[in-house]
């Protein structure tokens, strides 16, 4: 790693101030960022740790029935505390990385990084979540802008994420055998006004909504409803773990399994 200063603010306001320093970068749980720094692929001069900010931690239901999760809440806490409110989301959180990673990695960090194979982007997009930052609120549909790209400005912090809670939902992950990230992950959520299907791991453009499947499932929420629907392998990631065609095929299989397992 190149050297850097570490700031450990205890309030959002102090974090924002610290991020005003030259080449400052927010540090969530660091489970992706620290390995990246070890490879010397980034060279911030200041890392502003967000994990000590109490107001950015925790899981609760809002008055309008949404599940609010603080941006610095670790995956393990979401897995535990969201279980009775939003089991599909809690289950997703309980399968990110491994237990030690889940004790450090945060939802805000994951969404800010927007790794094309990460799990949380599928949940946020599949739920139609609202990403709340220190400056504004961003709808998930506007937030994800391609691999590792988001609507966040430089130094902008994800302070909270609000999830509308669907009637039923499920996330199916088919893991890449080495990294254990999603080779393909599909989040399916059925709301009163329709179904959302979000796919991670598969596309060169990062997480995306499979609108054809959404339409089919909105009229008939059954695994068979997606029979005959197919994505083009040409738009999918092709690498040593699987071709674009294979990923496109897996999206269909994982979607059906997610529907079948949705609770």
């Amino acid at each position: 790693m190149y050297n850097f200063d570490v700031e450990t603010p205890t309030s959002i306001a102090d974090a924002v101030k610290a991020l005003g320093r030259e080449e400052a970068q927010p540090l969530g749980g660091g489970q992706t960022l620290i390995p990246t720094l070890k490879q010397r692929l980034a060279s911030p001069s200041v890392l502003v740790s967000l994990t000590g900010i109490a107001e950015m931690k925790g899981v609760c239901m809002t008055d309008d029935g949404q599940l609010a999760i603080g941006g610095a809440t670790p995956h393990a806490v979401v897995a535990r505390e969201a279980a009775r409110h939003y089991p599909g989301l809690a289950d997703l959180a309980s399968h990110i990385g491994d237990p030690a990673v889940r004790n450090r990695g945060t939802i805000g960090g994951s969404l800010a990084n927007n790794d094309p194979s990460a799990c949380y982007p599928a949940a946020a997009l599949g739920s139609g979540a609202t990403i709340i930052t220190d400056k504004r609120e961003i709808a998930a549909d506007d937030y994800f802008q391609g691999m590792f790209a988001t609507a966040l400005d430089e130094g902008e912090i994800v302070t909270e994420v609000r999830f509308p809670v669907p009637e039923v939902s499920h996330y199916q992950k088919f893991v890449q055998p080495a990294s254990r990230f999603a080779l393909v992950g599909v989040f399916v959520a059925r709301f009163g006004d329709g179904v959302r299907v979000a796919v991670t791991g598969a596309s060169n453009d990062g997480v995306f909504r499979w609108t054809e499947a959404e339409t089919a499932l909105s009229s008939n929420f059954a695994a068979d409803a997606v029979n005959g629907l197919a994505l083009s392998g040409a738009d999918m990631i092709s690498d040593l773990h699987g071709s674009g065609d294979y990923r496109a095929h897996l999206v269909g299989v994982m979607t059906k399994r997610a529907v079948a397992a949705a609770r």
């Binding site: 055998p177 080495a178 990294s179 254990r180 690498d239 040593l240 773990h241």
Partner: peptide, 15 residues
């Protein structure tokens, strides 16, 4: 291409 545990799949307990 398989230059780390991100791409070289080591057997885990659940495999």
């Amino acid at each position: 291409l398989s230059a780390s545990y991100m791409d070289y799949a080591m057997p885990r307990a659940d495999d």
